[in-house]
């Protein structure tokens, strides 16, 4: 899932400026699970905006709604009229949701309420950890199912480095575990330590952020258009 967190309220209020009617639009997918942009967060953020506006003596109407997923066109059907009524749509979905609105509704001003941070999962209640770097060339088969791209602070392909101490990473020894230490322990447990002796060659980074926009086209799924 995509992990995101809310922008500071001050930044959101600054973005909104003097808008009189704001729609706070939540997303029922990933950002609901990481408690950043679901219907509950729509309620909390809207309430904060109303209180802050009342405190400053400003006039502000906040409309609240949440749709199933902001990354797919179909789900906007039920809210599009409400969206058009607002001066601003504050989307608290990931960056994909914000851009979907910008693309589908060119006349609507859409603003991002979240900072999208990573791909990960809720590791334990209240903890949302990064697990995947989206590098486009998965090597989890070589690393005991632990991703060194996302979970090693230096994204090393061969580790651990000299900054690994007692299983923790030098970047933040209190909170960040050394991914290569984890990989070593896992491979040891599985009796596959010979794997760590292999030197991993440089990865194909052209599938990652540096290789341009990564669109995938599946010809078997394309819309069939009849020529009239």
């Amino acid at each position: 899932m995509i992990i995101a967190e809310q922008k500071p309220l001050e930044e959101i209020r600054e973005m909104l400026g003097d808008a009189k009617k704001v729609m706070v639009l939540g997303c029922g997918a990933c950002v609901t699970i990481c408690f950043a942009g679901g219907s509950k967060e729509v309620g909390i953020l809207s309430s904060q905006l109303r209180i802050a506006a009342k405190k400053d003596g400003k006039e502000l109407e906040v409309i609240e709604d949440t749709i199933e997923r902001q990354c797919e066109n179909e789900f906007f059907e039920s809210v599009k009229d409400k969206m058009k009524e607002a001066d601003v749509v504050l989307s608290i979905a990931c960056g994909v949701g914000v851009q979907t609105i910008a693309e589908l509704f060119p006349d609507i001003l859409v603003l991002p309420g979240l900072n999208t941070t990573s791909f990960g999962r809720p590791k334990e209640p209240g903890v949302f950890a990064e697990y995947c770097g989206g590098c486009g060339d998965c090597i989890l088969d070589l690393t005991g199912g632990i991703c060194p791209i996302a979970r090693c602070s230096k994204s090393l392909l061969n580790g651990p480095c000299g900054g690994s101490e007692n299983g923790m990473c030098e970047v933040d020894p209190k909170t960040i575990q050394c991914a290569w230490h984890l990989i070593f322990e896992k491979l040891e447990k599985m009796g596959r330590l010979d794997q760590i002796e292999k030197i991993n060659p440089p990865k194909d980074w052209s599938n990652s952020m540096s290789g341009g926009v990564r669109n995938i086209v599946r010809e078997d799924l394309l819309e069939v258009k009849l020529e009239s």
Binding site: K40, G43, I44, S47, Q48, R50, I51, K54
Partner: peptide, 11 residues
């Protein structure tokens, strides 16, 4: 008790 209850009370 949800934080929203508390915010609503202030609102």
């Amino acid at each position: 008790v949800d934080v929203l209850y508390i915010l609503k009370a202030f609102e």
